[in-house]
Write a protein that binds this DNA or RNA. Sequence first.
DNA 1: ATTGGGCGTTGAAAGGTTTCAACTACGGAT
DNA 2: ATCCGTAGTTGAAACCTTTCAACGCCCAAT
Lengths: 348, 348
Amino acid sequence: MVTEAEASLPRERSPRHVSVKDVAAAAGVSVGTVSNVLNRPDKVLPSTLEHVLGVIDELGFVRNDAARQLRAGTSRSVGMVVLDVRNPFFTDVAQGVEARLGEQGRPLILANSGQDEARESTYLDLFEEQRVSGLLITPVGQVLPRLRRIRDRGTAVVIVDRRVGSREFSSVSVDDKLGGRLAAQHLVDVGRRRIAFVGGPRGLNQVKDRLAAAEMVASASRGVALRFVETATMDADAGRRAAEDLLKLDGRERPDAIFAANDLIALGVLQALTLARVRVPDDIAIVGYDDIDFAASAAIPITSVRQPREGMGQVAADLLLDVIADPARRVRHVVLEPELVVRRSTAG
Amino acid sequence: MVTEAEASLPRERSPRHVSVKDVAAAAGVSVGTVSNVLNRPDKVLPSTLEHVLGVIDELGFVRNDAARQLRAGTSRSVGMVVLDVRNPFFTDVAQGVEARLGEQGRPLILANSGQDEARESTYLDLFEEQRVSGLLITPVGQVLPRLRRIRDRGTAVVIVDRRVGSREFSSVSVDDKLGGRLAAQHLVDVGRRRIAFVGGPRGLNQVKDRLAAAEMVASASRGVALRFVETATMDADAGRRAAEDLLKLDGRERPDAIFAANDLIALGVLQALTLARVRVPDDIAIVGYDDIDFAASAAIPITSVRQPREGMGQVAADLLLDVIADPARRVRHVVLEPELVVRRSTAG
DNA sequence: ATTGGGCGTTGAAAGGTTTCAACTACGGAT
DNA sequence: ATCCGTAGTTGAAACCTTTCAACGCCCAAT
């Protein structure tokens, strides 16, 4: 019975893939010619071309990229490791990269380290095994030696949104010191005296630089105190929690301004403050960083330090393409300038 | 002179990659053994294992994934084509997928169709050529025949956030009719009579279903009129423009409620209304769709239809893994339920 | 002393594409 | 009539990994 039932099922023919060899056989030409049809159509007699294309279509032939890469030694793809795909900042940067690479017919493979060293490392493995032709990375952990080895094996590497290993790798970044200064100075200018910087982890250069610049501004302004509230991550949730902690401080300790290391944190902070009926900006002003689209449409539109996100992506792609084209090329660092966008969260 | 200069340059040794063969030679074993070290370490004498691993490390050997895939016939990766990476809804779904796939050590390759048929098609080509083991897609164009062929060649396919080709492909979706009904009924319940549905393009099933359900609610409620404002895309910009158009209508024509097909549109609408000093919800109420995190933190927190985003991603991954494991598996459709989250944009 | 079985290792084959030197045919030049 | 050059095509080699039948060796059992 069982046998009968099975027998009555339509026999699935094994879905083996059609290869150039099959196409060649069916078309009555050599594999070399099929390959020429695919890669150098001008070298093929028009009639042959047409015929082979017909067979390809009929048989449903699809190039096997693995074999192609194996032969070529490297893939055309570019790998990109970002800190957090859910942060629009990074998807905007990626968008810029993708746009530029797309012009060259190079696919972008996006991977999300989630600020986790282990995942970062896993994805680097993956990209190496895939022999991507280039690698864009915003490093989390101590990956410099690793990147060096990758580069030595012939893969182009460009650092995005950071400037580490300056002697060895080209990079695009935005001047975080300037950004930090702009934000802090603005808060001081609108009369704030007790500023809390919320962000982290401390190890991140971005955090470090923005904080350092803010500290300089604070110490240069009489009567201004700055405290650092470290967070483990840079998302809205971290912002909410940090704000709740700050609200536990009473009167004289409580800050009158919060400088968030990015807009997601700022949004979280804003939510927590609103929930606690703290008035923004009257009681506490907020400055964010990145100027993601959502900052402008927040409950209280958030003052933010705008970074040229897509532009950064494009520059990153350009630098990488240069290195791919000529690995010996001199290391370059492009530093873009951020810009303060004042909105209601600090107005007043 | 030129020659001298060149000669004096440090001779770049070509960065050829180290292969198993090289490792084998250096370790004094056969390639088979090296492969065993990598894939079946338990079959190898501990002393050999250690020695070979040492050589691997020393030589900086990195597996060539292309060769590996070529042999295996298929890659472990899963490809996913989303409509818009910049929409947090999709990155949240992708996050869910990635989490589940990650448990199985399968990388997820994300591609962005941007609601463009040509790009969708390009990425399908890419994924096919890469022989991904599975494909998750939220289709834009008429890709059904295409997907059928891909499936017939042995690639698992699962439809995400849609339910097309029900007989042939498993799918996860959220009940858009229900969502549309919830939103529209809510607007009617709070006393709105002239509802504008903003979204598009019309061809999208999601749009179609949500709209159809809203129309049913409208026609079942006396004195309620519904108009459809079609947009080309589903982003904030489209929302802004649609709202500007709606504001050109005078008094009696002007809607007192807007049902946006997603939250990005809703945010755009909100911005345009705010700019035009239209009071929300007093003059015009807004309902969004998706309940992305940013809906809650908008200037006026937006009432929205919540979709289980990560959950959907996980279900999608599960369905896909099932099909990969057993291609003959019966087609299944998981339909999740949305839920209305009421906030200030409709309160009153 | 011989056989059988296990363990660890070997080496060749397979997988699909691209490249390139070599070949064929043919028209034009000598 | 012969040679040359060109355009089009061929087929083998190379890319690197994995698999698997076969092999050698040693110990245990007969």
